[in-house]
């Protein structure tokens, strides 16, 4: 066991905390990765179990284990749900530090830059976590410990050279697809809400409702992780597919870990201008700011917006 511990010199200090994790599983309920793949091994509890296994030597360090350890969007929903106070993301970060030293670099959910990069360095300036650096001879290098997978660099890159290889359904192409699918799935479909994963939307989490309950469904909540990832296409696509309105949910001022809410505000504002130019009521797109954990407020905002949209009727 000694050798395993020396190997993981940053992780080692969490051994006691890993024993305190009671493995109740409360943390996986809202984890976007679990919600997407529905495999427990993609959920935060499994991360703790694997970290324990690495420390004791029961789990062999393979590229697959390393890759898994680089998967996380740092929404910290797991930590909010865990009242054993397990510092899940801190543990993961220390594991990442060790893995980097051992020659693993992810990428998992961290961003990568492909060779078409034009070296404009906009992403380096935009990254809220100082994770991107330009190194002569190497180009843009991403620090997989610092990168918090917010996706802001992906949005800002003018030539789309940046990707997050493992998106867990939060990739904008997939989001657009799901928006379109919903809007064409039933007559009642009117609104798409893009919610960041911090705003605890009041949706059914991990079960499926009976078809009869969904026939009259008017809106769909799509989790896009961070408001900073929203771009014009994402906002426009629903309108091109018969949507009556689009709602964007982000964190309150000063509460977003990535300042993604500020970026979202700008994009929504621009979208309002576009709608006005097209002679469409700009109130059909609306941004709400919801503190983490406030399901009630989120539902109330949705209800108010739906009422307004229903008064406006479809776009003619």
């Amino acid at each position: 066991m000694q050798t395993e511990k020396t190997k993981f010199e940053n992780l080692e200090k969490w051994e006691g905390m890993l024993a305190k994790c009671i493995r109740c599983g409360y943390c996986y309920e809202h984890c976007p990765m679990f919600k997407y793949t529905r495999w427990e091994s993609d959920a935060p509890r499994a991360k703790n179990i694997l970290a324990h296994g690495l420390l004791t030597g029961e789990v062999e360090l393979t590229p697959a284990v390393a890759e898994k350890s680089f998967n996380c969007f740092f929404c910290k929903r797991c930590e909010a749900a865990c009242s054993s106070g397990v510092k899940i993301t801190d543990i993961m970060l220390d594991l990442r530090r060790d893995l980097v030293k051992l020659g693993y670099n992810g990428p998992g959910t961290t961003s990568i830059t492909d060779r078409s990069c034009a070296r404009c360095l906009q992403c380096v300036r935009a990254c809220p976590h100082d994770a991107r650096e330009f190194i002569d001879g190497e180009g843009i290098v991403v620090d997989p410990v610092k990168c918090k997978s917010c996706g802001i660099c992906v949005e800002i890159c003018p030539i789309e050279a940046i990707t997050i290889p493992l998106s867990f359904g939060t990739d904008k192409v997939e989001l657009e697809q799901r928006a379109v699918e919903f809007l064409h799935s039933r007559e009642s479909a009117k609104v798409i809400m893009y919610a960041c994963n911090w705003s605890y939307h009041p949706d059914i989490q991990n079960s499926r409702l009976p078809e009869s309950e969904l026939e009259e469904k008017e809106y769909e909540i799509l989790v896009n992780l961070c408001g900073g990832r929203i771009d014009q296409n994402l906002l426009l696509t629903p309108f091109l597919n018969q949507a009556w309105g689009v709602l964007v949910g982000v964190c309150p001022d000063g509460e977003c870990n990535h300042d993604g809410n500020e970026a979202a505000k700008k994009r929504v504002k621009r979208m309002k201008e576009t709608l006005e130019n097209l002679d469409i009521n700009p109130d059909r797109i609306h941004l709400v700011q919801i503190p983490a954990g406030d399901k009630q407020l989120c539902q109330a905002e949705i209800d108010t917006f739906m009422e307004k949209i229903n008064q406006m009727g479809p776009i003619r």
Partner: peptide, 27 residues
């Protein structure tokens, strides 16, 4: 279906004091 040892290990636990890996996970 999952057969990777890492998945098997992760599914080897619940909220008890025990751990034992299954041979395969089927959903």
């Amino acid at each position: 279906i999952k057969t990777d040892p890492l998945d098997l290990y992760a599914y080897g636990a619940d909220a008890s004091v025990y751990h034992a890996s299954p041979w395969v996970i089927v959903r």
